[in-house]
Every structure is written in structure tokens, then in C-alpha cells.
């Protein structure tokens, strides 16, 4: 259940990153570094809000800034449920 949810979250974040950058979706994996992807801080915040709405969790505003990879984001979202 947790794995499935983790994949859902990773997939959701990948799509949101693609919407905001020129990066090809195939180049974004669960191990991709958020820092290297080069998202702007505003994009990071807005994606955090979208995660909160989509998965009905309370997201810590610093979560995306503190997480190194998409996988780590997913783990923190699951932990906050």
C-alpha cells in the first residue's frame, strides 16, 4: 500500500515538474535530485500545495526544500499522513 502510494506521489510530482520546466518526463526519476532539476522556489511552493490538495495531507512548507530526491518527497508525504 505504501509502495503504491509512493509511486503515485512520485508520478504526480514528475508531472508537476514537467508542467513547470522544459525537462522531458523520462529524464525525471525517483532518484532525480530536486536541486539539479532546477525548479524555482516559487514552483517548489506551488507544487507543495498541489501535493497537499491531491493527497489530502498536511505538507510542511519546508518539505520540498529539505528533500533531496522525489523518493524522499514521497516518503515525507506518506509520513505526514
Amino acid at each position: 500500500m505504501n509502495n503504491l502510494k509512493e509511486n503515485d506521489i512520485i508520478e504526480f510530482v514528475r508531472l508537476k515538474i514537467v508542467e513547470r520546466t522544459d525537462i522531458d518526463i523520462d529524464d525525471i526519476t525517483e532518484e532525480s535530485s530536486l536541486e539539479e532539476i532546477g525548479l524555482g522556489s516559487l514552483d517548489v511552493v506551488l507544487i507543495s500545495g498541489e501535493i497537499e490538495d491531491e493527497f489530502k495531507v498536511e505538507v510542511d512548507p519546508m518539505m520540498m526544500f529539505e528533500s533531496k530526491t522525489l523518493k524522499e518527497v514521497a516518503s515525507r508525504v506518506i509520513a505526514s499522513k
Binding site: 516559487l42 511552493v45 506551488l46 507543495s48 500545495g49 498541489e50 497537499e52 490538495d53
Partner: peptide, 9 residues
């Protein structure tokens, strides 16, 4: 109970 909150500036 919170229904939603706005994110960003």
C-alpha cells in the same frame, strides 16, 4: 476542520 489553504505569494 480545514477544507483547503492557498499556497504561495
Amino acid at each position: 476542520k480545514r477544507i483547503w489553504r492557498s499556497w504561495g505569494p
